[in-house]
Amino acid sequence: MPSTPTHSRRRALAWGATALAAPGLALAQLGDKPLRIILPLSAGSGADGAIRAISTSLAKALGQPVVIENLPGAGGITGTTQLVRAPKDGSVIGVVSNNHVVNPSVYKNIPFDSIEDITPITIIGATPFVLVAHPGVPAKNVKELIALAKAKPGVLNYGSSGNGTILHLGAAMFVEQAQLDIKHIPYKGMGPLMNDILGGQVQLGVVAVAPAAAHIKAGTLRALGVSTAARVPSLPDVPTIAEQGLPRYELDGWIAAVAPAGIPKAEVARLHAGFKNALAMPEARDALIAQGYEIKLSAPEASTAFMRSELARMAQVVKNAHVTMD
């Protein structure tokens, strides 16, 4: 049946509002209903940059508009609460990060189950972290930092993007495994943390490699060790924390696409195929890598198993590091 002017205008407005489609993609190929992606993190965060970097390709792969909605708050709990209550028809998904499996161990009351109330679609990618110091700290590597901290217990401090965040746990893991006495100073986000490490108001921090790399190369930050099992290509001369005497240390910042629990299996398969096809496109792959991520595409079942294992691992990290909410 021919489209009415009102119907055509509605489709055009819905598509135009997202501004995410590849130029020239015919509207006739697209569904009327956009895919709504809830991001329980603030605009400008690493996960936000990553999903926006691949959104055009994702819209093309799925054949429908994509709308991204930031719903930050309470370490991701605010947005995820909306996600788990969303329609279970494949029209709403979310992109979550490590905090999704950390929160059950650091918050007393969460209005959902981090595993049972979601359906993982895929792990999208992961980004490495790096332990950095202000250049005024007289330590050039992890071994020197450990020696300095043990010689001056309680004198050094480290900042984080907030109490209970993955950057807090990254630093707390280091302090716990090295058995150090270093004070924690929580900030409200990555931006304020980076500004104060650069300014010398805080001495140490575990931060994402991508936003820190330029400062490291400029000498305004000193990289002491990367958090991953292998060295990072963008910082090839920086050894891992593990190879500097803490062999159990390994951490990265992953992001995953998830849907509400109860979504039909056909929709899970469709959405997974959408991400798979999008990340096969050079423009999406290159854009994600430019954001500092390594692509980690995984099947829904493997994604579920991974998130369960991370939930257990982070619970032990929180317990060992004695992390509590303020």
Rank of each mutant, 00 (worst) to 15 (best):
V238N: 08
L279G: 09
S45I: 12
A312E: 14
I110P: 10
E69R: 12
P72N: 02
L204M: 06
R9E: 11
A284Y: 06
G136Y: 00
M190W: 14
A269G: 07
S298W: 03
I216Q: 00
G253H: 15
P111T: 06
G274L: 08
L156E: 05
T220W: 00
M1G: 15
M314S: 15
N103Q: 04
S234F: 06
Y158W: 13
K296Q: 15
Q291L: 00
A151P: 07
W254H: 07
S309W: 01
A315K: 01
F112T: 11
L156F: 10
L235D: 06
Q244N: 06
N163D: 14
R313Y: 11
Y187F: 15
E250K: 04
N157R: 07
D89A: 07
A133Q: 01
S298A: 15
G205L: 00
V238I: 14
M281A: 14
S303W: 05
L13Y: 08
V84Q: 04
I37S: 03
L25E: 15
D196T: 12
L13D: 11
N98M: 03
H168F: 03
K276T: 15
R231V: 05
N99H: 12
N163E: 11
L30S: 13
G199S: 13
A178R: 01
R222V: 13
I54T: 11
E144C: 08
A266K: 12
D237P: 13
L311V: 05
D252N: 12
E283R: 02
E267S: 09
A299T: 14
L30H: 13
P87E: 01
S57P: 10
V130N: 01
H168N: 15
G170E: 07
S114D: 12
A213W: 03
D181R: 02
P40E: 08
F112Y: 15
Y158L: 04
A256M: 15
I263C: 00
I197G: 10
T78K: 05
A315D: 02
M1E: 15
M173Y: 00
L297F: 09
Y107V: 09
G189P: 07
I51Q: 04
L224P: 02
E301D: 14
G253E: 10
G164C: 02
I124W: 06
E294A: 12
T228R: 03
I38R: 04
V66W: 00
L83R: 00
